[in-house]
């Protein structure tokens, strides 16, 4: 494999033991260092299975998965792989192990046998990065969903990962929590160059990615920049996925004869084009 890829999924199929039809079929996927890739798909599309393959929680039935050049099937590198590709899960409650926020952030480091002083430094820094320092001594059940997810992110950051894999990390949050978590991860991606694989069924979140991969029935059906993906309004509807409101409005207005460009995603872009068409004088 080429060393420029951070994650590389090569011809991977995966079948659950109790289910004869595979959850993933011959997936090929590469993620470059520093990329923010959104994986979009409805429930049961296989996107969560894909996430678990990237962290060696599952091993492919066929094909191979590489994380930073390490084969996930290589048992000797297991802890290395898992600390390089950290994972956040859907349910904020079910991934916090310790009774105090600070100790939960340390959990991964404790498992890796990091010396105490180094651990303290990394934990404090990770809490600072996700803006949770003032809750360091709180009990997890006193936090909101968004705060819990940020604790989970801190727990991964402390392990100094190359990559964060978020498996529907915002699905159970309210709009505010969802924004908090997404902006935290986006900031890490931009400022620290951490690669992100953002698995979701919310199109609003996928819109902000560098690249979108659409998964359906265990296969990658679309792949490209958000603009290219969401302008395929009819195709996305067939896949039971949302497109941004403005994209679908532009699509409809094009049907009404208005020459709007494809790939409009936001209110601002739409307002710009529509006003140019309707008030050319401005």
């Amino acid at each position: 494999m080429a060393s420029s890829e951070l994650l590389s999924v090569e011809q991977v199929s995966y079948a659950y033991e109790d289910n004869p039809s595979p959850a993933l079929k011959h997936i090929d996927m590469k993620v470059k260092p520093g990329e923010f890739v959104a994986v979009l798909g409805h429930n049961g599309s296989g996107k969560s299975t894909l996430a678990k393959l990237l962290n060696a929680l599952y091993l492919p039935t066929e094909g191979r998965v590489f994380v930073c050049g390490m084969d996930t099937a290589d048992e000797d590198r297991l802890w290395d792989i898992r600390s390089r590709a950290g994972m956040i899960f859907q349910n904020p409650d079910n991934q916090i192990v310790a009774t105090i926020v600070r100790e939960d952030v340390a959990f991964g480091l404790e498992n890796l046998g990091v010396p105490h002083d180094e651990m303290v430094r990394r934990v404090d820094q990770a809490l600072e990065t996700v803006n949770m320092t003032k809750h360091a001594e709180s009990a997890p059940h006193m936090l909101s969903g968004g705060q819990k997810q940020r604790v989970a992110i801190a727990g991964i950051l402390a392990m100094e990962p190359s990559c964060i894999i978020a498996d529907e990390a915002t699905a159970m949050l309210d709009p505010k929590g969802r924004r908090q978590v997404l902006t935290t991860v986006q900031r890490l991606n931009r400022e620290s160059g951490i690669t992100v694989v953002w698995i979701t069924h919310y199109m609003e979140e996928a819109v902000q990615a560098d690249r979108v991969i659409v998964v359906s029935d265990g296969e990658i059906v679309l792949q490209g920049k958000p603009r290219e993906i969401f302008s395929q309004v009819e195709r996305m509807r067939e896949l039971h996925l949302d497109v941004p409101r403005m994209t679908s409005l532009a699509h409809e207005l094009r049907g009404d004869g208005m020459p709007l460009s494809e790939g409009i995603l936001t209110v601002d872009e739409m307002a710009e084009e529509v006003s140019r068409l309707l008030c050319p004088s401005n």
Binding site: R82, M87, N94, Q95, V97, N111, M159
Partner: peptide
């Protein structure tokens, strides 16, 4: 699963 993914 979460514990395993954090190297427990």
């Amino acid at each position: 699963m979460a514990m395993e993914s954090r190297c427990y």
